[in-house]
């Protein structure tokens, strides 16, 4: 068949396919028979594309058919995604993803602890660090027995501090997660930097005998906040490990798989940051709320976050045993 005859014969099919495929992308509400019909025409377009590519490469028809082949692929084929359920996500999918990342969360937590101790030691034994970390005005306040956290209630309204705290913490979590893309180095940095800073800040306040006051401030929100950042850093590390460690499958398969698992962890953590921001801006600085209540609140938040994860860990082996028997 010559080119002109091929174009004249097949052009109506190409035009109708392009029109219907474009409409299908917009509506996304096709019946089974409509999809079947479109898929049939897509196969015809693909055959035409193969013919044009072999006999008339680079011609107008070959270019149009290539475009139609790509269009058909994006309209008729979609990556497999199950139906989303919020309850299933938070009580099944998210806890399972956290458990998968547990070894890397452990690594992040270990490094966090080591660097926290290091930061504490440096701040206690090296007085210059206090000024470098917190600034001269804050250190002067500490000398007079005032924590910088007092300004959270005296100078700034809770709405502003909540927003600032939430966005800052979510930025840290997102950076810890995305840092996994740099072979895990970014995640490691976030875990270690935050550990060092926390240790150093406690060290500085200990030097001025204010560590108990700082503890009183952080106890309600601090436990879960650190846990969330370490969980996100651990998820990021999981991506980094998938990039570095070659397995049986190619990285083009394993890395996106690890990233999607880590995404579940991140998405499950983000709402907690919003809740924690309210706690940190309203309850944590409160002078009326006793330490014990704040500690119980912090513990309760931590338990709420960890319970679905722990319950899943208990249920999983039972389910495996049940399936085996």
């Amino acid at each position: 068949m010559d080119y002109a005859r091929f174009v004249a014969l097949r052009r109506p099919l190409w035009e109708s396919f392009e029109r219907d495929a474009t409409a299908a992308r917009r509506s996304r509400d096709l019946t089974y028979s409509e999809v079947e019909e479109l898929a049939l025409r897509y196969r015809q377009v693909l055959q035409d594309h193969a013919w044009a590519r072999a006999h008339f490469p680079g011609t107008g028809a070959a270019q149009r058919l290539l475009r139609l082949a790509v269009l058909g692929g994006t309209v008729l084929q979609r990556e497999d995604e199950g139906r989303f359920s919020l309850v299933r996500f938070f009580f099944s999918r998210f806890p399972a993803a956290v458990r998968t990342s547990m070894p890397w969360i452990g690594v992040a937590a270990g490094l966090f602890l080591v660097t926290a101790l290091l930061g504490w030691a440096v701040a206690v034994y090296e007085p210059g660090v206090a000024v470098a970390l917190l600034g001269p005005a804050t250190v002067e306040g500490l000398e007079h027995g005032h924590l910088w956290t007092e300004s959270l209630t005296t100078t700034l309204p809770p709405a502003l501090t909540s927003s600032a705290i939430a966005t800052n913490n979510m930025s840290v979590a997102l950076t810890a997660w995305a840092g996994g893309a740099l072979c895990g180095l970014g995640s490691l940095w976030v875990a270690m930097f935050n550990g060092f800073m926390l240790g150093a800040v406690f060290g500085v306040t200990a030097r001025f005998s204010m560590a108990a006051e700082l503890g009183n401030f952080v106890i309600a929100h601090g436990m879960l906040e650190i846990t969330l950042i370490l969980v996100c850093a651990g998820a990021g590390l999981g991506i980094g490990v998938a990039i570095l460690r070659a397995g049986d499958l190619p990285r083009s398969v394993t890395v996106p798989r690890a990233a999607r698992e880590a995404l579940v962890v991140l998405l499950g953590c983000l709402p907690w940051f919003l809740l924690l921001a309210i706690v940190e801006s309203v309850l944590s600085p409160s002078a009326e709320l006793p330490f014990l209540w704040k500690a119980l609140l912090g513990l309760a938040l931590e338990i709420c976050f960890l319970t679905p994860i722990a319950l899943g860990a208990i249920r999983e082996p039972a389910a495996v045993e049940g399936a085996a028997s």
Partner: peptide
């Protein structure tokens, strides 16, 4: 331009979220 999955299919929500979170890096 359009983002597609590496097999030419329409990219899923998870893939689109992942590629945009990493944008900061």
């Amino acid at each position: 331009l359009r983002v597609v999955a590496r097999d030419g299919a329409a990219a899923g929500t998870a893939a689109l979220l992942v590629r945009n979170i990493v944008r900061i890096v």
